[in-house]
């Protein structure tokens, strides 16, 4: 079983549309949506939920108002500006989304007025789609630590993959190069980067390639909407050659990509469009190299 992670550096490059097409083209795979901040894959793959579970991660502090003496110690100790004074009640309150769960306030509150409890951060789901099993998740509004949820989604996807004797796991990764991305690429077999022909796109691919190099993984890339700027596309291709990134193809700007999404379908299911043809070709290239 091989695990392929699709990432993009910056968002909005068409990563999810391409991942959805891969999921449809691949005959025997489990799909994992690890872009938990903007988990959109379900809008195209239309999953039916089979099981779900809670995602607990870290802790959070909250002030028990009746016990609070309003001494302000928590306010001064908190390094995350999570404690504020409520003029109306004359008590201190902790903002859930700002609290990082360090526990300093709870440990040093002279009145023992701060509880420090487990934080429920979201939910994960195992679902069926017409193209196989899909594992996805939803982070609670403002919840932290999507990196761990990413690890959890990948782990469940691997378990499902083993059960089903799947050939591949296709992961829709998060944008950026931070914690969630690190959590989505470590221990995978190959990383596929979707980029676009712009200065930002090129810059982000450079950062992504450095990150992937850091983990010693093979990197594959494609340019989406390449004809928006053929010169930069060429520069990206050259960059790939120089860095040993396997360049799999370039997808033209095609309104059918948006139309497919509006219909709730993947690009390759929607129509015999130029983008669909190129995505199929890229998938062929990728499979040839990974398997």
């Amino acid at each position: 079983m091989k695990e392929l992670v699709v990432i993009s550096g910056k968002g909005g490059t068409g990563k999810t549309s391409i991942t959805a097409s891969f999921a449809v083209l691949s005959k025997n795979s489990v799909v994992a949506d690890c872009d938990v901040d903007a988990a959109d894959l379900f809008l195209v793959l239309n999953p039916k939920m089979i099981t779900s579970g809670k995602f607990i991660s870290g802790k959070k502090a909250s002030i028990i108002s009746e016990k609070c003496l309003s001494c302000g110690k928590c306010f001064y100790l908190c390094k995350f500006d999570a404690v504020s004074y409520d003029d109306l009640t004359g008590k201190y309150v902790i903002c859930d989304t700002a609290c990082e769960g360090c526990g300093v306030c709870a440990a040093f509150c002279p009145a023992g007025a701060i509880s420090f409890t487990e934080r429920e951060c979201g939910e994960w789901f195992i679902s069926k789609t017409s193209h196989g099993t899909m594992v996805h998740a939803r982070l609670k509004i403002g919840a932290e630590n999507s990196g761990k949820l990413v690890s959890l989604v990948r782990k469940i996807a691997r378990e499902e993959g083993v059960k089903e004797k799947a050939e591949k796991i296709i992961v829709d990764g998060p944008p950026g190069i931070g914690c969630p991305v690190i959590a989505s690429v470590t221990g995978s077999d190959a990383v596929f980067a979707v980029t676009e022909p712009s200065l930002s796109g090129k810059h982000d691919l450079e950062r992504v390639s450095e990150l992937v190099g850091h983990f010693n993984l093979p990197l594959f890339a494609c340019v989406n909407k390449w004809d928006v700027n053929p010169e930069i596309t060429l520069e990206i291709e050259k960059f790939c050659v120089k860095k040993g990134i396997f360049f799999c193809g370039k997808i033209p700007y095609d309104k059918n990509v948006t139309k497919a999404q509006i219909e709730g379908k993947s690009v390759v299911e929607y129509d015999e469009s130029p983008a669909a043809r190129e995505i199929s070709k890229i998938w062929g290239n990728l499979c040839g190299k990974i398997l």
Partner: peptide, 24 residues
């Protein structure tokens, strides 16, 4: 981008938030 801690950290304290989206 997103809705988790980095986005919240950036938005916190702003007077107004403009959310940019696309018709899809």
């Amino acid at each position: 981008p997103g809705n988790s801690c980095p986005m919240i950290t950036a938005v916190r304290g702003a007077d107004y938030v403009v959310l940019v989206t696309e018709p899809t």
